[in-house]
Design a protein around this nucleic acid. Structure first.
Lengths: 228, 228
DNA sequence: TCGATCGGGTGATGGCCATCACATAAATCG
DNA sequence: CGATTTATGTGATGGCCATCACCCGATCGA
């Protein structure tokens, strides 16, 4: 299996599986850029001019209200592509992408993206897959927020999603390297509620935490809490 | 300008602007189907086997929790395409699509969709645009629910979105043909809260309603309420 | 025409959680 | 190492809203 252009790993991302032609095109028309922790790849409202292929590091994708309330949509990792929707519709970025750790990113300007999509079939298929993933992420977020009736339920839902994710990597532990503040932004609640909810789950022996490691003791209890 | 295959209007949907070849392919491989009010085009969890091009009528797109809590993602109309994401990823439908009025729909089986995407460039571009729209709808929904801190704020946000939409059609009125129950499902709140919130907005002379017609008197007041 | 159903309006109540305030722990940095 | 920032924990309080209960009017179907 061919390796991803720069992830230097057999990437699972849609843009990691290009054939020789599209790969060469991507390589010669994109610019590898490094971002330090805290810097922005692009910001909500900026005119879109490129797509971003994450090669290493973690990128926080979020949207902000005028009041400063933040909604975290997802955490992108190696293999993920950011800014596709805005590039295709020639509009503004609808979200802000910010490096959570030092990141290495391939930046492909929109005009080259367009050329690539027109000339290489595998590239347009990959683009469609990227969009489908973006859609799923947004849909899952909407579902996470809408369906559970209470903040506590949303936290339970989030933990269950993580557990699912961990299990898919045959891992019994969840490594949660996010602050309570960030968790609050993902579940449309406040930091204090996150602290209290996690505390209560611990007290009730439903979860167990050791530093960043989180273990679910009673999945059914979480299911009951979120009820969705 | 060529007319949409079956909308019989200069459709604005991505699939309404096909060239002669892709149009002919679509026509000969899809099945025009009518749905009565209340019937389902497809249901959440069903195996995806086709995409649906709405030619006339309105279709409610929603997701449901096990408890029966409903999240309405959007109301699709003529020109909209449903089920694209599930078809492309060969997965299950993640939402339920239900006819709100008698609907006429073109049903294109997934295998023919795939053939079409591989053979016609304009079709794959259109598919990408459909996905981008789906993404925006889900994102907007997540944003609507996440960012305003209170149910009342979300209702205000929803009305503002409608006003925006109406203004883009140079219309000073909003025609709101949805029940309070449905509004509640769109804003993650309850019917009673919708009734009370609208009542209060009326009392405060912020909005005015006459039957299904709604008029915004003080947009700034709504902005202040939702604060996003 | 008359139930039956549905959409809408309203009161009472109680719990949850947002907000404010402050205290501690941990990490970062000079 | 001290000092400052960041992350977390916790109490008190009050308001909003989910829930339950009921009523009314309109619409629909037989």
């Amino acid at each position: 299996m061919s390796k991803c252009l720069s992830c230097s790993q057999a990437g699972k991302g849609a843009f990691c599986k290009f054939g020789p032609q599209s790969r060469a095109f991507l390589q010669s028309n994109s610019l590898k850029t490094d971002y330090v922790r805290g810097s922005s790849l692009f910001r909500e409202g900026d005119r879109s001019n490129a797509i971003f292929l994450v090669c290493s590091g973690k990128v926080k994708v979020s949207a902000t209200s005028r009041e400063g309330r933040v909604m975290i949509l997802r955490i992108a990792q190696a293999g993920d592509v950011l800014g596709m929707s805005a590039a295709l519709t020639q509009g503004d970025y609808e979200v802000t992408a910010e490096a959570l750790e030092p990141c290495s990113v391939l930046v492909l300007p929109t005009k080259h993206l367009m050329t690539m999509l027109q000339n290489f079939g595998d590239a347009s298929l990959a683009a469609a897959n990227v969009l489908a993933e973006d859609y799923r992420a947004a849909f899952d977020e909407a579902r996470l927020i809408s369906l559970p009736s209470s903040p506590a339920g949303r936290v339970a839902r989030l933990i269950l999603d993580w557990a699912q994710d961990a299990k898919s990597r045959s891992n019994t532990f969840i490594t949660m390297s996010m602050t309570h503040e960030e968790l609050a932004s993902m579940t449309a609640t406040t930091r204090e509620t996150i602290t209290r909810t996690l505390g209560r789950l611990r007290k009730d022996k439903i979860i167990e935490t050791h530093g960043v490691v989180l273990k679910v003791l009673q999945p059914q209890a979480l299911e009951r809490l979120c009820a969705c």
